[in-house]
């Protein structure tokens, strides 16, 4: 079981609209992530990567295809145990640190919210202890943070709170949809290092959804390159960066400005 993928999709397809206005956003996508892996799904705007993320999280039903968690189909899982059990195992961090915290909640309340996923909530003392532990893991000052409201936090701090929120339920997989695209470069590294550290410390599997190839390369073992709804190339990060095979990947890499390589205009 530990050898099999923790999260996998097969033939995942999503069509928006119908008839003449039908738009094939995701087209027969297959991918599999092994436990403890850090991978990145890379695509530009309109590539369908965010739609894949939403289907992976069970927030959007696929038109066709399946999502499997530890080999069990998401539909079966939903019928057998409900989505809450899935979300105990698969959690997410989103792009907009300003929009993903309820502005009317304190950090404590936002984080305690996650215990709704448990059919029998742990006692309050244990819940608080787990919230504190999670805040500590992401490097936030616990006592200072609990009573704060979102508007008192910087973008970087909010995103750490969001990561801590996801960790409270001790999930196996974390889907990070553009977690740093709205955060300054100077705080970006700290956020990414926290996520990478989680893999080492807790064996967390992380999937980045991003347009930022530099970020994906820095963080991930394997990359999936998505273009117009399809995965056009996948493989170990180093192989893809050093020797891209697909035309699209080649163009993408040539168009990203780096520090050392000439950028032919």
């Amino acid at each position: 079981m530990s050898d099999g993928p923790i999260l996998a999709v097969e033939g995942l397809t999503r069509v928006f609209g119908s008839g003449r206005h039908a738009n094939l956003a995701v087209d027969r996508v297959d991918l599999a992530i092994r436990p403890g892996e850090v991978v990145a799904l890379i695509g530009e705007s309109g590539s369908g990567k965010t739609t894949v993320a939403r289907m992976l999280l069970g927030l959007l039903p696929p038109t066709e295809g399946t999502v499997r968690y530890r080999g069990v189909d998401l539909d079966t899982l939903r019928r057998r145990e409900g989505m809450r059990s899935y979300w105990r195992n698969v959690q997410a961090v989103f792009q907009d640190p300003f929009g993903s915290l309820n502005a009317f909640y304190s950090v404590r309340r936002c984080m305690l919210n996650a215990f709704k996923l448990f059919p029998r909530r742990p006692p309050r003392a244990e819940r608080i202890a787990r919230v504190r532990e999670a805040l500590d893991i992401v490097g936030l000052d616990v006592d200072d943070m609990l009573t704060k409201h979102p508007h008192q936090l910087s973008g970087g701090q909010r995103q750490r709170v969001m990561i801590a929120r996801a960790l409270v339920v001790q999930p196996g997989v974390l889907i990070a949809d553009e977690p740093t695209s709205m955060i300054d470069a100077s705080s970006r590294a700290a956020i990414l290092n926290i996520l990478l550290d989680l893999r080492t410390r807790l064996g967390l599997t992380v999937m980045f959804i991003t347009h930022d190839i530099g970020m994906a390369y820095y963080t991930s073992d394997r990359l999936f390159i998505m273009h117009l709804g399809r995965i056009v190339e996948e493989g170990p990060a180093d192989d893809i960066i050093r020797d891209p095979q697909h035309e699209y990947t080649k163009r993408l890499l040539a168009d990203v400005p780096t520090l050392s390589r000439e950028w032919i205009l």
């Binding site: 470069a185 970020m215 990203v256 050392s260």
Partner: peptide
């Protein structure tokens, strides 16, 4: 953070 060899080995601290 840029996709160039060597990037991965470095620890970027911000």
């Amino acid at each position: 953070l840029v996709p160039e060899p060597g990037m991965k080995e470095r620890t970027v601290t911000g």
